[in-house]
Lab assay of single mutants.
Amino acid sequence: MADQLTEEQIAEFKEAFSLFDKDGDGTITTKELGTVMRSLGQNPTEAELQDMINEVDADGNGTIDFPEFLTMMARKMKDTDSEEEIREAFRVFDKDGNGYISAAELRHVMTNLGEKLTDEEVDEMIREADIDGDGQVNYEEFVQMMTAK
């Protein structure tokens, strides 16, 4: 299944994987998964984290390695993001709930994920998604960005 991913997608997933893999040992533990999910405003229980890991832990060693992570991402993409997942993601970014993602809100979430971005990089990300040019990202623009192939 992971063989249907483009090189660009694999590179993006590698970057995402390293955000989860806090200690850089090449595997994601339940603790690391929990840290990232909490930084995104989720509050999973230990059991939920274990279930999430077990779902993709092909070799049964209790952690997720990069090939397992790729399989999980490929699977998720095949079920292409349901509207509800996209709306949920939008809410994570839209901290003040005004229906727009500002540069400050984007920077806040990315920083929580451990991504240190310059102001230019954040502005560039907003510009790429900002179709109507108002300097922020509304829900429609967010959907376009998330579903762009």
Rank of each mutant, 00 (worst) to 15 (best):
E128G: 11
M72A: 02
A103V: 09
V109M: 11
E8N: 15
S102D: 08
E124S: 10
Y100H: 13
N54E: 04
M1L: 10
T29A: 12
F17A: 00
G41S: 11
V56P: 01
E141H: 06
I131L: 12
G99L: 01
T30H: 04
I53E: 01
D51Q: 08
A103S: 11
D3L: 08
T27V: 07
N54Q: 05
V143R: 15
T80N: 03
Y100M: 06
F20H: 05
E88C: 07
L106C: 03
A103H: 06
V36K: 00
R87D: 00
S18I: 02
E32K: 12
E128Y: 02
G97W: 01
E83M: 07
Q144Y: 08
G41D: 13
A58V: 14
S18L: 14
E7R: 09
E55M: 10
G60A: 02
L117F: 06
A148P: 07
N54W: 09
Y139I: 02
M125G: 07
A104F: 01
F69T: 01
L19D: 06
D59V: 09
D79T: 02
Y100V: 04
E120I: 12
F69H: 03
T30E: 06
T71R: 10
R127I: 11
V36A: 12
R91M: 09
L49N: 02
E128A: 14
E7V: 11
M146I: 10
Q136P: 08
G62E: 14
L33D: 00
K78V: 00
A89L: 03
K14S: 05
T118H: 06
G62T: 01
K116Q: 14
V122F: 02
E83V: 13
I28T: 10
D81H: 00
N61I: 10
R127P: 01
L117E: 06
M73D: 09
F93T: 14
T29C: 04
K78E: 13
M77Y: 09
D23P: 03
A103Q: 06
A16T: 11
A89K: 02
G133V: 10
D3M: 07
L5C: 05
D130P: 01
T80R: 08
K31F: 07
N43C: 07
M37E: 01
V92K: 08
D51V: 02
R127K: 10
F69C: 02
D21W: 13
K116A: 00
M125N: 00
A104M: 12
T29E: 05
N112E: 09
A2F: 15
T118C: 00
N54M: 09
G99C: 12
K31D: 02
E128P: 03
A58C: 01
L106I: 14
E115R: 00
D123T: 02
E115N: 07
K116D: 00
M52Q: 01
M52W: 06
K78P: 00
Q4C: 07
T71D: 01
R91P: 04
K95Q: 13
Q144I: 08
G24E: 08
I64L: 09
Q42Y: 07
I126E: 02
E115L: 00
F13M: 00
M37I: 12
D51F: 15
R75F: 06
V122K: 09
V36F: 13
M73R: 11
D134Y: 03
Y139P: 05
E128M: 15
G62I: 08
F93P: 02
A129D: 00
A74C: 03
N138Y: 15
T29V: 15
V56E: 07
R107G: 14
E68P: 03
K14T: 08
K31G: 10
G114D: 02
Q144H: 10
G26V: 11
D123K: 05
G114V: 05
I126C: 04
D79V: 09
K22N: 14
M77E: 03
E12D: 13
N43T: 15
D130T: 02
A103R: 13
T45K: 13
L33G: 00
V56C: 04
F66L: 13
L117G: 07
R91C: 02
D25V: 10
V122Y: 05
L49E: 15
G41M: 15
I131G: 06
T118G: 01
M77D: 09
F20T: 02
I10F: 10
Q136H: 09
V56F: 03
V92D: 04
G133C: 01
E115S: 05
A74Y: 15
G26T: 05
G62L: 08
F142G: 01
A58H: 09
L33N: 00
A11Q: 05
R75T: 02
A74F: 02
E15W: 05
T6D: 04
G97D: 12
D79F: 09
E140R: 02
T71M: 15
Q9E: 09
R91A: 06
S39D: 01
L106M: 03
Y100Q: 15
I101D: 11
E84G: 13
R107H: 12
D134M: 09
A74P: 09
D79W: 14
T27N: 13
D21R: 09
D79S: 04
E124P: 01
Q4G: 06
M145G: 09
G60M: 10
E46H: 06
V122W: 04
T29Q: 08
A148R: 06
K22H: 03
N112Q: 09
A16S: 10
F90E: 12
E85R: 13
L49S: 10
G133Q: 10
E68L: 00
E124Y: 02
Q50M: 01
G34K: 03
T80M: 13
T45G: 03
E128D: 14
N54R: 05
I86V: 11
G34R: 13
R38K: 11
R38I: 01
N61W: 05
F20G: 05
Q50T: 05
D81S: 00
T6M: 14
G26C: 11
V56H: 06
A58I: 02
V56R: 04
R107V: 04
E140Y: 12
A129C: 02
Q9P: 05
